[in-house]
Amino acid sequence: MKTQKFLRNFASQFDEVDPETIKIETRFRDIEGWSSLTALSIIAMADEEYNVKLKGDDIRKAVTVEDLFNIINSK
């Protein structure tokens, strides 16, 4: 899985955020507009783009965008 592609997929879940400001080390809960709905859209993105089933605990344990990247990679 490519990091840049993942970053783009991740950033596209946010409506009003400049994708350039989201880095692999970004703590995603600090991104403006993050909500419980964003979490669902991340789960849907992992399902659609990577055919990976993220659980609630996967999201809850993750802190940075990279954590999510690694979790999806490991599944």
Binding site: S36, A39, L40, I43, A44, D47, K53, L54, K55, G56, I59, R60
Partner: peptide
């Protein structure tokens, strides 16, 4: 209701 787990389950 654990929304994230139900969602992940339902869509697959």
């Amino acid at each position: 209701l654990d929304g994230m787990n139900v969602f992940s389950f339902g869509i697959s």
